[in-house]
Design a protein around this nucleic acid. Structure first.
Lengths: 192, 192
DNA sequence: CTCATTTCTTAACTAAAGTCAGCGAATACA
DNA sequence: TGTATTCGCTGACTTTAGTTAAGAAATGAG
């Protein structure tokens, strides 16, 4: 195990023997049933995940609704923003499907960083890459209309629309489910 | 010099003597006139900044307009998303005021990380903090209406509205300048 | 398989943002 | 200092999203 994680890392940095050993040593797989709440609002996040199979949704509870912030699927890393800090989490994490993930903890992480100092460098570099992708995503969100955002999602992650309910997609796009319905109708009419 | 940078770091991690030495050694101050373009679209970003005085605006050129992504002011770090990578930048950086900043480069960074390994850990931890703040900002943006976003900005960074033109604020809020005008009018009417 | 629940779509209406145009006010600069 | 340009506000109109309500379709549990 840990093969998928190594492949993921190799996209960003050269994987040395030391890193390979560290990952294999720390790989710790867990299975979760669909609907499992991995992190509840107000709790402390003491796990992070690398998804091997399935989907994890991050959302806020606000105005009696669930506002979806992100969908994480295969080959993606989920690090709650309060991970490793002793503060209450603002958001929730839920498995929208049966999910298999490699699970990490702050204690394990600190131990690994000590044992394999190269890992700290790996974490920094990958963190920077994710950050810059995230900035790009935010900028795109700001610059585009809801319709454009939907079309981009359709292009970039067509699988999501098959595996996740549309009301969750709507809140992910920053709109109401009714609006998403209308956007879909508008688009299908334009095609005719 | 480097005092401000150390104060900034101390908010996130305990500043050891080693780190203090590293920062003092690498502090490199530059002054820029208002209107200076620090990074042009398509160019390679080979500098990052820590602002001591002034304001740097990050924006994209799209549809013949400038879409503002972020305003960085005193005590903030500006790391272009392509910084340290040999790829063309998608966004631009401009000084909206006369600006004084501590400037870093990838070469200096690598040298420093080698000389003071603790710095790498500092960079990772601070990177994670910035990332989690950014996630929070994005989530807030998605969940709020333009009017709420404006009110939040007014609360969180009232100085910005004094020092930056309103059309740039508008694009930062993801709306047109005319809409911002109307929102401001709506709010001032409600107060009466 | 059936019934209950959730999800999706549609419609009518309201509210707000986009668009286009015009006009003062502030600003920049020559 | 005078002039050109940018900036901010306003109004009329268009487009799109939010709201409320209802019914159809899909899903899930027993």
């Amino acid at each position: 195990m840990g093969k998928e994680v190594l492949e993921y890392l190799s996209k960003y940095i050269p994987v040395t023997d030391e890193i390979e050993r560290a990952i294999k040593e720390s790989a710790f797989i867990k299975h979760f049933k669909k609907g499992t709440i991995l992190l509840e609002e107000g709790n402390i996040a003491n796990e992070c995940y690398f998804i091997l199979k399935g989907c994890i949704r991050s959302y806020y509870k606000r105005d009696g609704e669930e506002k979806t912030v992100e969908f994480y699927t295969e080959e993606q890393a989920v690090t709650p923003s309060s991970y490793g800090k002793q503060i209450a989490s603002e958001h929730c994490l839920e498995c929208t499907e049966d999910t298999m993930a490699s699970v990490g903890s702050p204690e394990l992480e600190i131990e690994m960083f000590k044992k394999y100092p190269q890992l700290e460098s790996v974490a920094r570099v990958i963190g920077e890459v994710i950050m810059s992708k995230y900035q790009e995503t935010f900028a795109e969100f700001k610059m585009n209309s809801p319709e454009e955002r939907y079309l981009n999602l359709l292009k970039d992650r067509p699988d999501l629309l098959q595996r996740v309910p549309q009301n969750q997609i709507a809140s992910y796009l920053g709109i109401k489910p009714e609006s998403l319905s209308r956007i879909r109708k508008r688009i299908s009419n334009q095609k005719k």
